[in-house]
Design a protein around this nucleic acid. Sequence first.
DNA 1: CATTCCCGCCAAACA
DNA 2: TGTTTGGCGGGAATG
Length: 373
Amino acid sequence: MSSSLHTEDSQWKNPSIYSRKDKSLGLLCSNFLKLCDREGEDSTIGLDNAADQLGVERRRIYDIVNILESVGVLSRKAKNQYRWNGYSAISKAVDLLKKEGLKDLSTVSSTCHNVSNVIACNNSDVKEKGEGKTAGSNKIDNRKEKSLMILAQNFVKLFHCSDVDLISLDKAASTLLGDVHDPMAMKTKTRRLYDIANVFVSLNLIEKIRSPDNGKPVFRWIAWNENPRSGSLAAAKSDDSTRRTFGAEITNITPKRYRDDSSSDLMSNGLKRLKVAKDDELKDKKQEISAEQLNERGTKDFVFGPFGPSSLPRSGISGKENLKQIQNWEDLASKYHPQYQNKAANELFAHYVEAWESWQVEAANELHKQHEH
DNA sequence: CATTCCCGCCAAACA
DNA sequence: TGTTTGGCGGGAATG
């Protein structure tokens, strides 16, 4: 209990207005993210370093890293070493997960009807390197099946392998749990899902909203993946409705209703919705296009939003001037937001927008801190 | 009251 | 063995 390893951590010494949110996984994740893409694309980031930079215990980094890896933005390289793949890696990873999920679903459907734990119990390792050893492959690696990474991936599958687009964590937990009806297990699983949801939110993959009819909080997938209808690109070259951010109103967006009562089973719904396979090729094409765009962007130096990875110019001297500048940029940002039509740019931008907030908060904290001292 | 979820104990996995 | 990872759930902050 000796107060070791704190030298400058004595910022919140006074229990004045400490808030839990200052230490939330989501915020931490945002900071981690921004730290990551400050480095190059295929850069290696060390956990020790990250933990140190962010001023948190090692443990929390593990959480974030595992979840991020589930969506492809990071890859484990070696002990303590992760590779930053960038946001562009997300679509591929998610797509793969979707495919995987659908496969599992159909496989089991031909066997029995009692699905539900389809996704949960897919004990297929799928190592990076082919297969090699076919036998045994599992001992007491029960642990791995319960890993945050797997859970996160299954969570993603839930969104993409059913027609339900509003999912509550309770439902997700019970679905992922399968037939086990242990209240304690439910509790734990839900707790994990909170963590995952938080980092997904900070990645702008999902969004938390209140259920229209329930009032209870549910999550909804956002970011590029739209419904198969509508003519992808083209369509609306964006207008100047500057204030077009989501959240303002409930626009349409939801052609289909959903049941959130504890009576209907999510999976059974998902089962009879295998039509998605049909959209496969369409989606493929779309993906191709975006891939090209990505490449193009990568070749040219593209944009990187208002501020480049290394464009953190002289700050820290004049606070007010900077703030003003930021406001300007922010305004600019919101104006341009609706103009991005393709997914990659969109998410990229979303991330930057989010980074603003986090930075501003940070700056404010710093200011307060110094002011106090 | 219910929902959210931080913190860190402590046990697998690994060097 | 010591170190790195990371389940897991108590219980406190928050809504």
